[in-house]
Design a protein around this nucleic acid. Structure first.
Lengths: 206, 206
DNA sequence: TCCATTTACTACACAACTGTAGCATTCTGG
DNA sequence: CCAGAATGCTACAGTTGTGTAGTAAATGGA
């Protein structure tokens, strides 16, 4: 065994070469998997590199820094979530009563969550552990959703309800029950949730 | 200037000596301040030492490691929160209707939050960023509170409401509106919240 | 086959943090 | 004043992560 053979033996074999676009997607998938498994406070360039089986310069070749990577992940995930949300909501039921809407929306949203749990878990755990740039972005998104929900409530319920507070309540409940469904879908079934929602909302209608 | 003078010049002046019990309390206060300002993911022995103006061995002289310190902080904060909560809730109103209870509880809870915001902010931001041991403890506490709320609901509302789901909803709403009040107390006033709560709960009563 | 391009790895410097043995300083009582 | 006890600091070793210059390997086209 010569010295060059000894030296060559020690060098880690190269990971398969991958076009940049595909590599970026792979890195984003890895980041999402880490966030889902370990939480936002465990995400790092080093962790992502290890998850994929490449070295850090490869990650830096695709993204300038962690912030940029997380921004790209957010872009991608947001697009996925919005697509799923619009597919799930009964937007064709324009003239229906709130109770009918709820009876159709709850099972659809329930199925949506379970069809892509990783996406929704990452979104619904966007609490204080997220990097600051991510948190600001998510807060902005939540503000927009809040305004939309507030408009819907204003047109559906009597005027003696505070629409802004109700919108906050609806968002908080959707997020909380989303987390419960993802954690225990057999216990928090679509049927059970729909029944309760119908009963409570029904009591608020004229 | 002799060599010993030069050496003495370079040594950092000692922080004031403090009895152990007082030091522990001071370190816990510092930890709470860091969590409030920077979040759970920024808490570390080093950060606490810097916050107080001592070196790390001083912190390690008081607590074995970060986990033990955070456990002690949790014990202390939990005791504070429970004391404040029991002082705020109208426990003397045993025979009152749910609407009356709410009308008295909301302003009291509102004032409680603002009387000690740091304590409540640390509790209400106990999301995914917390160290695992803390998260498990908080989850256990939440489960107990949930069971208590579920019992109260079972006795106050008609049987066609799902008490478990409602308990989850109440907890989610209390936490969410707690965060809103801490963030913007002038916008989310006690009066406004009480009015909305009265209207909604009133609609559920026989 | 050879060469140029593209993609991947190594080794390094640096920063931040954990944990501790040994040493230093401060304070109080005799 | 001095000695001892109690509390505080320094320097060190180790770990983990960031970021990068230089080198290596792989691939495809001529």
């Amino acid at each position: 065994m010569t010295a060059s053979e000894t030296t060559a033996r020690k060098r880690r074999p190269y990971a398969a070469r991958v076009p940049m676009a595909q590599r970026r997607e792979q890195l984003l998938d890895a980041a999402l998997a880490i966030i889902d498994r370990d939480g936002y406070d465990r995400i790092s360039i080093d962790a992502i590199a290890k998850e994929v089986g490449v070295t850090r310069p490869v990650v830096y070749g695709a993204f300038d820094d962690l912030g940029q990577l997380l921004g790209a992940l957010l872009d991608r995930q947001q697009e996925r979530a919005i697509t799923q949300l619009y597919a799930a909501l009964p937007l064709d039921a324009v003239g229906s009563s709130p109770v009918e809407l709820v009876e159709r929306a709850v099972p659809a949203l329930h199925a949506m969550l379970l069809a892509d749990p990783m996406t929704w878990r990452a979104i619904l755990q966007s609490g204080s552990g997220v990097p600051e740039a991510v948190g600001r972005r998510v807060d902005g998104d939540r503000t927009r959703v809040l305004a939309t929900v507030e408009l819907m409530i204003s047109s559906a319920l009597p005027q003696d309800y505070d629409a802004e507070l109700l919108a906050h309540a609806v968002i908080a409940l959707l997020e909380h029950f989303g987390r419960l469904v993802l954690a225990d879908p057999e216990h928090f079934t679509a049927e059970r949730l729909a029944t309760s929602a119908r009963t409570m909302i029904g009591a608020w209608l004229p």
